[in-house]
Write a protein that binds this DNA or RNA. Structure first.
Lengths: 142, 142
DNA sequence: GCTATTTGTATCGTATACGATAGAATCGCA
DNA sequence: TGCGATTCTATCGTATACGATACAAATAGC
């Protein structure tokens, strides 16, 4: 008796995450954003001017992912990257006017995604919490 | 009041999927497999000799992802790709002896992943079903 | 004050993902 | 039966991801 992908939790996670990005596409494409770029902006809207490493800590991404991502966003005119004069090792990421304006232009996105999921707010919160707990368990085991 | 990534269901999905692949790494790396390759093998163990399109239907991946993936697996000696003689448009994917033998070599993987999640079997099944339902809702809205 | 270590970011190589397009084989229908 | 439409897979271009490594700036000890 063999287990098929459809029965595996890992595949549910994997395929649902793909479907999630697909659901975001019609919402983000008109804004010229990819999903990871939208995530970076969401982080900066709450915490402008943070360091690359701080962004990585919040989004759980390494610099080898973030640096090229941020460079594309810089080219797109959404953010600026500046070495900290105090500590030249650090790079501070700041929103441009366009990056800040994107917050209003994307104001409808969360509502659109919620509708796409078909979930109620409490269902969404419960699922989010279950996933976060599972993620932290997996991360704790190194 | 701004929403930060930590509060967003999409980010929970996104980051938990990354953590899932990281949890699989110590289990699959000794076998020389990536997670998507392991998924393909899992599908073939139940359904050897299926068409590229069928694999895509089961794994929800397009040929532009599968073709290079399968070629790498062919190079690694896990599968063969052969045009169907009946219908030359179709390519059939068959397990090699090594690909079939991998089923035994990977027999401990599901148990290892289950432990990494810290979930009970019923919890795992419940989460899987919630995710599958959400995925199908998102996919239906196309 | 000087160097070994640590810290923060970037680069390189490889493997997914996916939209758009191409191209060959088969099918449908007049 | 002939040929345009459809089907199936592959290719191309771009954007993530991440392990391994590089490298400059800052810090710690002696």
């Amino acid at each position: 008796m063999t287990i098929s992908p459809a029965d595996m939790l890992c595949f549910s996670l994997y395929s649902t995450q793909h479907a999630m990005q697909a659901a975001y596409k019609p919402l983000l494409e008109p804004l010229g954003l990819t999903y990871p770029q939208y995530l970076v902006l969401s982080a900066l809207w709450s915490n402008d001017g943070c360091k690359v490493g701080e962004l990585g800590g919040e989004l759980l991404l390494e610099t080898n992912t973030l640096t090229p991502l941020l460079k594309r966003m810089e080219t797109a005119g959404l953010v600026t990257r500046k070495r900290d004069t105090r500590d030249e090792r650090q790079v501070r990421v700041h929103l441009t006017a366009d990056g800040r304006a994107m917050q209003d232009r994307a104001a409808h996105v969360p509502e659109g995604f919620l509708r796409a999921t078909g979930l109620s707010i409490p269902q969404l919160a419960a699922l989010r919490d279950q996933l976060n707990a599972m993620r932290e368990t997996m991360r704790a085991k190194t």
